[in-house]
Amino acid sequence: MHRFPSSRTSRGGRGGRAGALLLLAVTALTSCSGPQSALDSGGPSARRLATLWWALFAVSAVVWLVVVLCVVWAVVRRRGGEVEPRSGGTRTVVVAGIVVPTLVLVGTFVGTVSVMRAEAEPPTEPALTVEVIGHLWWWEVRYPDFVTANELHIPVGRSVQVELRTADVIHSFWVPSLTSKVDLIPNQDNELWLHADEAGEYRGQCAEFCGAQHAGMSFLVIAEPADEFDDWLADQARPAETPTDPLAVRGREVMESQSCAACHTVRGTDADGDIGPDLTHFGSRRTLGAGVAPNEPGWLGGWISNSQTIKPGNLMPPQPLDPVDLNALIAYLETLE
């Protein structure tokens, strides 16, 4: 019969490595904050999901450690030698591989269903309903009285119902710090609710691959105290103000006479295109191009002249305006607060 020499290299090491890995894991995860972090919760849903994660992590870490300890134990105590054609160990396999996992999984399922129930209903009766429509590659946001883009304002401490639809392909609406994601699917009406406990900006992003600029399709959920939110609603519902500054007046003419008006709407002007984002209160928004750049005059000029250099593949063609017209247009857009 074949005789096997015992080999004893690579002594130890594995135990230390396992410990180091775990340490890395814990330190990494306890400092999980960021504008789009699922563990930096701004509301009851995300908080519940973060607690669920830590519970799952704890159980998983125990299971993984048991397995690693078994491996380490076997390696440390290895002795080599001749074949022992004995079987045995079946009962241990049944207990450790069937009975215990089944109990753990039943517990997991109970937890799953209870969190699902809790997630189904918002904490308060929804204060309002907002419709979000996904486009290649930006978000149309429809409030009852007006339309805006790439920014959702909600009142702090009150639930908001969000209806999700798409104008083209499948997208997915994900604001990890507030709640989990739901897909936007053609011919289908999906919904979720948002509820923020603290005022602040919560960044969201498309989570379902949707083509060339999937990476450039983010948005902001801005939670404000009730009075600020009401002011915002009132401001946004008003049509665009007529500019007085001569440069801005010229900018508005450019807006209406050039190709801008074919795709964009500015309420209160002749621009009523419905292909690109509504620009009525463009000046009040924080970002450009669904979050790819800050809304500042320099970026705006670059965006209008050739947005392809900032967001390659997006559907807005370059606008070769002469420099004076461009400056006027920038000045006008900045007035649209």
């Binding site: 015992s6 290299t9 491996v71 241990t92």
Partner: peptide
């Protein structure tokens, strides 16, 4: 959840074997 049970059986079968056997690395 259920589909993980059979994988658990396999994992513990390997673990029990290396722990009961005369392991050579």
């Amino acid at each position: 959840l259920i589909v993980t049970v059979p994988s658990g059986i396999q994992v513990f079968s390997w673990l029990i074997t290396i722990m009961l056997g005369r392991l050579v690395v």
